[in-house]
Design a protein around this nucleic acid. Sequence first.
DNA 1: AATAAGGACACTC
DNA 2: GAGTGTCCTTATT
Length: 195
Amino acid sequence: MVLGEVLKDIETACKLLNIAADPVDWSPGNVQKWLLWTEHQYRLPPMGTAFQELGGKELCAMSEEQFRQRSPLGGDVLHAHLDIWKSASAGEDSWADSEVDSSCSGQPIHLWQFLRELLLKPHSYGRLIRWLNKEKGIFKIEDSAQVARLWGIRKNRPAMNYDKLSRSIRQYYKKGIIRKPDISQRLVYQFVHPI
DNA sequence: AATAAGGACACTC
DNA sequence: GAGTGTCCTTATT
């Protein structure tokens, strides 16, 4: 049901971000990644350095009031999002927490895997990247700047942009992972081996 | 102006 | 050495 969808979204997000599902386990760096990601996903006002140097444990111990003190604009919303993550992993402990842990802490993710994960979540990312023909693996990047930004968050590369991301995609041409479709179009690529 | 292609070099694992 | 990230030149849309 709805709860299942939430759990899947969280699992996808922690895979994309390479952070644990349980916020208590987050390092200060993990907290920043989650923060940037959540800001972007829900178009929250930028929190800037309001939560810098905070580990997951400290973050989880903070009240909604303290969130609002750090960030008067979006602090309450952010606290609500963290609450979802907390309760999701609390429920996870009762049955399949080892599975989530293993799927969320895979160290390096390749760019082509990252793009595929975004494509498989059209509900969350369909405004940024979507299939033109899923069977053939043809997809279009609808918002190059945002996709690059998300990739930058994942890799801790704040200076990431589409110029550099696309250069990495081009490296896939000779490797036979991604190519340009037969009819070349701007911002359209094709997986050589569709799902 | 934005995107595409690919060479060159630096960096991290 | 693989997989980028960064920078750059040139061409195309």
